[in-house]
Computed example of a mutant assay.
Amino acid sequence: MSGIVDGRVVIVTGAGRGLGRAHALAFAREGAHVVVNDIGVGLDGSGNSTGPAQQVVEEIEALGGKAVANTDDVADWAGAENLVATALDRFGRMDVLVNNAGFLRDRMLVNLGEDEWDAVIRVHLKGHFAPMRHAAAHWRAEAKAGRTPAARVINTSSGAGLLGSIGQGNYSAAKAGIAGLTVIAAAEFARYGITVNAIAPSARTRMTENTFDMAAPEDGFDAMAPENVSPLVVWLGSEASGSVSGRVFEVDGGRVSLAQAWRHGPVADKGARWEPGELGPVVERLIAESPEPEPVYGAS
């Protein structure tokens, strides 16, 4: 191993299983000390257990690494604050925040309940903002005290957030919000030595096993293994990534791609207020001059 994050202190949320577990172990193998956060809920967010987080801590310790379990709810304001305090109290510093926690409550929009909307928006979007807000407040204080950090935030968006996904309106909206939040945070936090990036991963986890055909191959390269995503996350958490911020990367298997954000397209400017009846041909021309949008996942 290169030791690219040797001695850095990393918080990984939702680290008891799947991608989060893979990230936590990958950071530990590269020399980082890890706060393993997981509330231990089911796929739909129900229940809780300290077991998953503690199990990953024990795996890291078996590798010779240092880790501590944390079971705070990242979408709870005080819980997110305590998560940051756990890193500072145990390891005396904090360098990297990986926001990964989430769950699904999939349903077509016409059948989606208010509680299903609220729960998914809460854990994904607020569950990214709250830890990031408390981490950034600490790093800002460090910068103002003359100890500008090489701080890193890595958020977890999704292809569903970038392109949309049928039957996942709540999840897609939350993940799109995370992509937007990433860009804004990168611009606001740059003065404090903080970079903020996001990944949109594809991997075999509890959240995706019923969505795509992600069966592990009997032999050869397992393109859908969550461990394939973690090297980019570790690099983004290193000091070497300091020139990269406000970016969203799609990553799966051996593929890394830079997602293209919304951009200004063709323009029609009359120089005066349009009449409604004039705009049909104008809109048709603008659409004709633009590339076709990427299809929504699951659209026929």
Rank of each mutant, 00 (worst) to 15 (best):
A151D: 04
L162Q: 14
V120S: 00
A173I: 08
K144F: 14
T148Y: 05
Q168W: 12
A136S: 15
A69G: 07
E59G: 02
G161V: 07
K144P: 06
L162K: 11
Q54S: 10
G177C: 13
T86C: 13
T148D: 03
T148N: 05
T156R: 08
K144Y: 14
K126Q: 04
A150S: 07
E116H: 02
V96L: 03
E59D: 15
A53L: 07
G161H: 06
A119I: 01
L162A: 15
F103T: 00
I121T: 01
H138F: 15
I121E: 01
G47E: 02
N99H: 05
I154D: 03
Y171V: 11
A151N: 01
V84E: 12
V98I: 11
F129S: 03
E114Q: 01
A151H: 03
T148K: 15
A130H: 10
D118H: 00
M94R: 06
S49R: 00
E59F: 08
A145G: 13
G113P: 03
L163V: 13
K144G: 10
V123L: 00
L88N: 08
N48A: 07
A173T: 15
M94W: 06
N170Q: 05
L83R: 12
A67W: 10
D73H: 09
H128E: 10
F129V: 04
S49A: 01
A143N: 10
R122L: 01
W139K: 07
F129N: 03
A141I: 07
K66V: 08
A145S: 14
F129M: 09
V68L: 13
A87N: 10
N48Q: 06
Q168K: 14
F129L: 15
R93L: 02
E114H: 01
E142W: 12
R105I: 01
A85G: 12
G169K: 03
D118W: 00
L63P: 02
A136E: 11
G92I: 05
Y171D: 12
F91P: 06
G45Q: 03
P131N: 10
N48M: 03
V84T: 13
R93Y: 02
I121C: 00
Q55T: 13
F129H: 08
A53D: 07
N70P: 06
G146H: 11
V68W: 10
G92A: 06
M132S: 15
Q168F: 11
R90Q: 14
G177V: 13
G51K: 08
